[in-house]
């Protein structure tokens, strides 16, 4: 279980996280929703140790993430970045097998390539993509490669940062389905941040809404549409009027 208790983070005078409390149960898919600039990405980066919180504690299976052995801790995670974050200088298969070509999970090159091609196939990409460079692929294909890289080492926990941003509705639907299938199939704990409501409905078991630096609402996805929380209601219906200030 991932547990966040009173996590705070500021950048100069910008108080992004003002005391986040959240529990993500093992094997569940939690989606964090919230407007742009509300600190969703910062929250994920705090859990991964990419950003150090100013206050509060983050534990994974009751162990403080800041005190955990970094390699062992990170080996449990996979992450799909918003822009896929593929390494330009490496071929697609080398991106997917990055973790399998070095470090504690190192495998022979041929085996790593075979696993990479299998993962590419799992996300709907043909083996001939393996020897291309990321710049030769479309945005949707890059997202799929990023997804294949996130699951290559079969991590226990997978983070998805805005998985459908910048994609057309059909490709977004494909990515959503893939994420749901993979998370269910691997039995992984998933945490997704998005403001795309179709992603929320396709991926989530539970939903948490981050607003004004705190978790404003949290509950099962089935209760999202019937929630009487004014923030949630305004957000999911995309209304300009409501407690969330809309800048025009």
């Amino acid at each position: 279980m991932i547990a966040l208790t009173q996590v705070k983070k500021s950048f100069d005078t910008n108080h992004v996280l003002r005391g986040v409390d959240l529990r993500v149960e093992t094997g569940t898919s939690t989606v964090i929703i919230g407007g742009s600039g509300t600190g969703k990405s910062v929250l994920l980066k705090c859990i991964l140790g990419l950003v150090t919180p100013d206050a509060g504690t983050i534990t994974l299976d009751d162990q403080d993430v800041l005190r955990a052995d970094r390699d062992t801790f990170l080996a449990r995670f996979g992450m799909l970045f918003q822009g896929a974050a593929l390494f330009d200088s490496l071929k697609v298969w080398e991106n997917v097998a990055f973790r399998l070509l070095r470090g504690s999970l190192k495998r022979p090159k041929a085996e790593a390539r075979e696993i990479a091609i299998e993962k590419l196939r799992r996300v709907g990409l043909k083996p001939d993509v393996a020897d291309k460079f990321p710049a030769e692929l479309s945005g949707g294909m890059q997202k799929r490669v990023g997804l294949a890289r996130a699951i290559a080492a079969e991590p226990e926990i997978i983070f998805f940062d805005e998985p459908t941003t910048g994609l057309d509705p059909i490709m977004a639907g494909v990515i959503n389905e893939l994420i749901r299938e993979i998370v269910t199939e691997m039995g992984a704990t998933a945490m997704t941040i998005t403001h795309d409501m179709s992603s929320v409905r396709a991926i989530a078991d539970r939903v948490a809404m981050l607003h004004d630096g705190v978790i404003q609402w949290e509950g099962p996805v089935a209760q999202l549409d019937t929630s009487d929380d004014p923030y949630v209601s305004q957000f999911i219906h995309g209304r300009a009027d409501g407690p969330i200030e809309a800048v025009r």
């Binding site: 990170l74 992450m79 918003q82 974050a85």
Partner: peptide, 13 residues
């Protein structure tokens, strides 16, 4: 700026 450095860290590198 394209988060590749963050990706390196998450890949234990």
């Amino acid at each position: 700026v394209t988060e590749q450095i963050d990706a390196l860290v998450t890949l234990s590198t």
